[in-house]
């Protein structure tokens, strides 16, 4: 995963706060085919992590590719990855390249 995306970065976000704290736009069949981070909320887990940035495009969540998933499906996948108690972190594969 990610080998064909030379600019991609794996970011592990610890569940350090009660919310993930990102807003995303995009998904299959929209102008932005992969979800893009549009906001990072102060005090959220993503902000605490310090490695996610506004403008990054999310390629994978916990190794699951987002390509081809519509917005709600992608959002639900991310929400569930944050909610599950199986892991104390969420892994994002992100790229600056849009």
């Amino acid at each position: 995963p990610g080998l064909l995306e030379p600019t991609s970065t794996l970011v592990r976000v610890a569940k350090s706060a009660s919310t993930l704290g990102i807003a995303i736009e995009g998904g299959a069949n929209t102008r932005q085919p992969l979800p893009r981070i549009v906001t990072i909320q102060r005090g959220g887990s993503a902000h605490n992590c310090g490695q996610l940035k506004v403008g990054q495009v999310i390629l994978e969540v916990n190794g699951v590719p987002l390509r081809g998933r519509e917005h709600r499906d992608a959002a639900q996948l991310i929400a569930e990855a944050f909610k599950t108690k199986e892991r104390d972190h969420v892994d994002f594969l992100v790229t600056e390249f849009n």
Binding site: T19, L20, G21, I22, A23, I24, E25, G26, G27, N29, T30, R31, Q32, V38, T39, Q41, H71, R72, A75, I78, A79, F82
Partner: peptide, 15 residues
Amino acid sequence: REKRLTLPPSEITLL
């Protein structure tokens, strides 16, 4: 590319 221009904007979801 023309097709891309006709695609709708996405909604935004806060997670």
